[in-house]
Amino acid sequence: MILALAVAAGAIVFAGVYLILSRDLLRMVVGVSILGYAANLALLASGRPEPGMKPAIVPEGLEALSSAAADPVPQALVLTSIVIGFALTCFSLVLVLAIQQRTGGADADALREVEPPPTHDHQPALVEEEP
């Protein structure tokens, strides 16, 4: 079980990093969120899930979890990180769509608004905007 999760997480990391290294901004942010899923899988695996485990619900009339129950902590952590990852993904998608709409492209290398390329004599570009 752990081995399967580990292999899956590794494959997802591979896919995520591959996408992040792209120059296309949309691929980049999709890569970041995919990497997040690998982290979620790793969190889930940290509870050492095994086949035949019961969900972490206290049975009627008992005070504590049975020994066959899954560890509830990683599940709570995964839920939290899914929510956060969800919010980040939403935000980054809006961001990239807005850039695409305003500049007509999403090439990371073409995005030099904040750091304009140096002038031909290797001096930093003059700051144009007024404070």
Binding site: L25, V29, G36, S92, V96, I99, E113, V114
Partner: peptide
């Protein structure tokens, strides 16, 4: 656009 540019640069490494 310069704000969005900065946000992308901040986002990718920090995330």
């Amino acid at each position: 656009v310069r704000n969005l540019d900065a946000t992308v640069k901040y986002f990718v490494l920090n995330a």
